[in-house]
Amino acid sequence: PDSPLARWTKSLHSLLGDQDGAYLFRTFLEREECVDTLDFWFACNGFRQMNLKDTKTLRVAKVIYKRYIENNCIVSKQLKPATKTYIRDSIKKQQIDSTMFDQAQTEIQTVMEENAYQMFLTSDIYLEYV
């Protein structure tokens, strides 16, 4: 009853918590040319686990900002302007906080839940796997 496949359809969160599910969803997003949204989502989780005393953490925050937020990529397009400004200012002031990407991650997650996740569950790649 609680097979991986049953979990995948339960929620996006359960899909992304399962290794095979996450990789299959990533393959789907690569095909749809919006894999950046998923990589950003995982980067936010990875960032949250980093040690704030480590000098690498500020660098990683800057890299995430440059890669996904500053430019006009799909992640940036799906974020609210205020959210992007908040992150930009935090980095400028070097005020790094574990939760600084939380709002952005939530916004991206909501879009994924409403669009890509629903499309994935009816996609060939998913049905073939099933």
Partner: peptide, 20 residues
């Protein structure tokens, strides 16, 4: 080697689910 891309990939990789 600690390029920006390496750092980012390591950050993403650290959050990917491990095999259950």
């Amino acid at each position: 080697l600690n390029s920006d891309e390496d750092l980012l990939q390591r950050c993403i990789g650290s959050a990917m689910p491990k095999r259950q």
